[in-house]
Simulated assay, not measured.
Amino acid sequence: MGGLIGVRSQRSARHDAELREQRERAAHRREILRQAVDALLVSAQEVDQVVNHRPDRDPPTIHLLWLNYHRLAIIASSQLRKPAKEFADALNEAFWHGTPDGEEVWEYLHVFRERFDTAAHRELDEEVSPSTPARDQEA
């Protein structure tokens, strides 16, 4: 009987260690995702400033936006990738062609930014099961 208890104890300890490691990986992934979301938002703000205050268009600004979008797209679920792409596309349009009917940049981007923010909050706040990372739950 003592041997059986020892085996169960070892299995339980191994299982606990595996769960702890999975939780740590999920927390690390969420932190990387948070940093990618933040980088895209910083790039979006820079594009907004260029469109509003500088008549010359600085190509490195838009290149950085796309770089940050792609960094995010690699690790994000489709539920976040889609609004991130729409937001990046809208920023790109405003950068190169201005806004429709000359509306303020923030007004034009508001809907896209709101969708992106909502999706990012949902993905970052969601409790991820250690055995089912968020990116694997795509529909």
Rank of each mutant, 00 (worst) to 15 (best):
A139E: 12
I32F: 01
T132L: 13
G98R: 01
P55R: 09
S12F: 05
Q35A: 12
L4F: 12
F87H: 06
Q79V: 13
E123T: 13
P59H: 02
A26T: 11
D38G: 12
Q137A: 15
R11D: 12
E18P: 00
A76C: 06
D117N: 10
H63G: 10
R135H: 10
L67S: 11
L124G: 11
S9Y: 10
P130R: 01
L33C: 09
L64Y: 00
Y108F: 15
G102C: 08
A44H: 04
E86M: 10
D56E: 11
V51Y: 01
V105L: 05
V37G: 00
S12Y: 06
S43A: 15
A84Q: 02
S131Q: 08
R23V: 13
R135W: 12
L109T: 09
K85L: 15
Q49W: 12
I62V: 14
V105H: 05
K85S: 11
A139K: 03
P100V: 13
E21V: 15
G6Q: 11
L67I: 09
L109E: 03
V50M: 07
A44L: 06
D16R: 07
L64D: 06
H97K: 05
S12D: 09
Y69T: 11
A120R: 01
S131I: 11
R122E: 14
E31H: 07
R14C: 08
D101Q: 05
G3C: 03
A90K: 02
L80D: 00
L19T: 12
A84D: 03
R57P: 03
D58L: 10
D136L: 10
D117R: 01
Q49T: 15
L41F: 13
V7F: 10
I5V: 15
V105I: 10
G102P: 05
S12T: 12
D101A: 10
E86T: 14
A27G: 07
Q49F: 15
E93K: 00
E18V: 14
H28M: 11
S43I: 11
P59V: 14
R25M: 13
A44Y: 04
L65R: 01
D136Y: 06
Q35R: 04
V50L: 03
E138Q: 07
D136G: 02
G3E: 04
H53S: 12
S12N: 08
Q79P: 00
R11M: 15
W96L: 13
W66E: 06
A27P: 00
S129W: 04
A73E: 09
Q49S: 15
P59W: 03
N68V: 09
Q35Y: 04
E126M: 14
E123R: 03
K85A: 14
I74P: 00
S77K: 02
P130E: 04
S129E: 08
P133R: 03
L19F: 11
A73R: 01
